[in-house]
Design a protein around this nucleic acid. Structure first.
Lengths: 236, 236
DNA sequence: ACAAAAGTGTTTACTTTACACCCATGA
DNA sequence: TCATGGGTGTAAAGTAAACACTTTTGT
């Protein structure tokens, strides 16, 4: 054991970050978990995360741990909530700043890093038992995702560059746990003016080829400004 | 100076809470600030807050500091954001968990506690120079307040038990920085079904007596359930 | 041929917006 | 009597919701 050498006048908690990484594959929503290589909860699945360094913000710490443990980088990352139950970690007083991140799952088919013994995607309704209070953190992240979907074009961070309208609809239905009429959904999305047509899907499929679209961030910003900064094109 | 006696194997940041307390008096929105009695920023105005104890959550710490420094208690308190710039406090590495709170300003006309040399309300557009990054925290709190107003019946935490429709409208206009038509606003609020009529305002005024209303939390919960858990009656 | 997913319009109901005059009270 | 804030309705425009048949392609 290393020598204890950092001393303070008053007790300080340890501060960690944890990341709920959502990935969508066109069909199901997944969460990226790592298998813990050390005690406590050795062998259990957990959210990627770890202790912050003294020369980085919590955002920087979260991104660093994410990269180290799962190889995920350059993603949309947003603060979720601070979890600070006094006994949430059996080792010492640990306060965690939870984040959530949105990635294109297809970008991270191969995953794993140096700290974690293993990392893998799990369907968000078929999660294994989780270490610490991580189940609670994921629950909160799902709620937040739903809230934010109404006010921000989050969905496109989860989809590939070009996507089918049916994938976008599926995503909205998953996150909001509801169903939409295909024709109404399509019309509403198109009327927002932020989707660019990208031609027919060249992939052969056992049915009619779907039209592909991409999200136009510039048009989105323009439209948002036009409507006075508050615009909810995705409130379905 | 007390002896430094808390020792850790790795460096730990200090963790504080800070509270943005909004108070509405029927006319203007205010923020509650304390005058710092100690260095750094001695004599400057700051948000109430302080270091957390090892046996309390950040929520408990925030409520404790609030009570100690301003006498404010039993209020709606919600996590806002973690501010963790490496140099945000000149003394040592301090990470702060910011909260915002909503109170009826009339409940806290007299304020002040033991830690702070003074505490006072300031109109939110006429704030004095602030300690640390507290101006930034207040900015974020205002944004959050605006976002949440659309999805939660926050407004009623700021109003007295019985309120005039014009006060409610004024509050919405302040928070959203916009103007509404009196008749349309009135109709929309009433159609939500969560306002109880409470008779005419008995206070003598130099004009026609206004009708008073109260917020009916039970009806709100019922209506919310009826509409499938997602209902935005206050999205104006 | 059939199974599977995709494309496409219209009608009706509801919601939102714009807009102006009279009323009650205290000074 | 006047200044101030409060009460109230309607018409037009826009948005949302409900609804079904045809097309394409691979097996």
């Amino acid at each position: 054991m290393a020598k204890k050498k950092y001393t303070y006048e008053y007790p300080h908690p340890a501060v960690t970050t944890d990341c709920v990484i959502f990935g969508f594959d066109g069909k199901d929503m997944h969460v990226l978990l790592i298998e813990r290589g050390i005690e406590p909860y050795k062998g259990a699945w957990a959210l990627p995360g770890g202790f912050i360094n003294m020369d980085e913000t919590v955002e920087q710490g979260a991104m660093r741990e994410l990269r180290e443990e799962t190889g995920v980088k350059d993603v949309f990352l947003e603060q979720l909530h601070v979890f600070s139950d006094v006994k949430r970690d059996p080792r010492e007083r640990v306060i965690t700043v939870a984040f959530y991140a949105l990635v294109r799952k297809s970008d991270y088919k191969v995953i794993g890093g140096d700290d974690a013994s293993d990392a893998d995607w799990f369907k968000w309704d078929e999660l294994p038992p989780l270490a610490f209070d991580h189940a609670q953190i994921i629950k909160k992240a799902r709620e937040r995702l739903q809230e934010r979907l109404h006010t921000t074009p989050l969905a496109f961070k989860l989809l590939d560059e070009k996507f089918k309208m049916s994938e976008l609809q599926r995503l909205y239905e998953l996150i909001n746990d509801t169903q939409y009429d295909r024709r109404n959904f399509n019309r509403k999305m198109m009327s927002s003016g932020v989707l660019d047509f990208q031609g027919l899907n060249p992939e052969p499929e056992p049915n009619r080829a779907a039209q592909l679209y991409s999200f136009d961030a510039d048009s989105y910003e323009k439209e948002k400004k036009k409507k006075g900064g508050r615009w909810f094109p995705f409130d379905l």
